[in-house]
């Protein structure tokens, strides 16, 4: 464990807690894409299949449970909670996210480190995580401005993978044989997808204006 990875995990944890808190407190999920949340639930489900078979540390298992629990409860809130589900604007959140999953699955079947069931699904979860934010970013473009909590959620979510990139650089230089091109490239693509959001988020923060994304 290094400071970059810990910062990444804490930032990731903060992002899901901000979202869960927002939905639980104000009983609203306006501006949040259910499609992205469903994709994240699938990312964690396919990423942590080994939660029962391979034990790394208490921290590792605890964080996996938190990420699984929070992502599935966010989906539950948005789909089934009597009050929250009414605030979900389904006619704006129309990204065909199943079209994201198929290319990720095909790519995982083609490019992976080992051709085993777990490894292919784990690689699938990496590719899917890289593009999972797209429905949310598309929804933001449509609804134009976003409330602070959703903005913070996306900012933290994008930031965590940036910390992971620093972690991968640190581990590359400090651990022999630590080379994982698939993880690195997927992580880089993921972070780059947030780049334009970060740009507008920073502008709104600098000019102390409400975050407005261009049409």
């Amino acid at each position: 464990m290094n400071i970059f990875r810990l910062a990444g995990d804490m930032t990731h944890l903060a992002s899901v807690l901000v979202l869960l808190l927002k939905i639980h407190t104000i009983k609203s999920c306006a501006g949040v894409s259910l499609k992205t949340q469903e994709l994240y639930a699938i990312v964690f489900a396919t990423r942590y299949l080994d939660i029962l078979t391979s034990f790394v540390s208490i921290y590792n298992t605890l964080m996996k449970l938190i990420f699984l629990g929070s992502s599935f409860s966010i989906v539950w809130y948005m789909k089934y909670h009597k009050t929250v589900r009414r605030t979900y604007d389904r006619d704006q959140d129309t990204f065909r996210h199943w079209f994201l999953m198929l290319p990720c699955l095909l790519l995982a079947l083609l490019i992976h480190e080992k051709f085993t069931f777990f490894e292919v699904l784990w690689t699938f979860s990496l590719y899917l995580e890289a593009v999972a934010i797209l429905p949310q970013l598309v929804l933001l473009q449509r609804t134009r401005n976003i409330d602070n909590l959703t903005g913070q959620y996306i900012f933290l979510l994008g930031g965590y993978r940036g910390f992971y990139i620093l972690n991968w650089i640190y581990r590359y230089f400090t651990e022999p044989h630590y080379v994982h091109w698939i993880t690195w490239i997927a992580g880089l693509v993921q972070t780059l997808l947030y780049a334009d959001f970060f740009y507008y988020y920073f502008l709104s923060w600098k000019n102390n204006k409400k975050l407005q994304l261009p049409a």
Binding site: R5, D9, H12, R47, S54, V56, K64, Y164, N167, H177
Partner: peptide, 10 residues
């Protein structure tokens, strides 16, 4: 071959 490295990252 490097030992079967565990996936220690989240």
């Amino acid at each position: 071959r490097p030992s079967q490295i565990k996936k220690d990252e989240l």
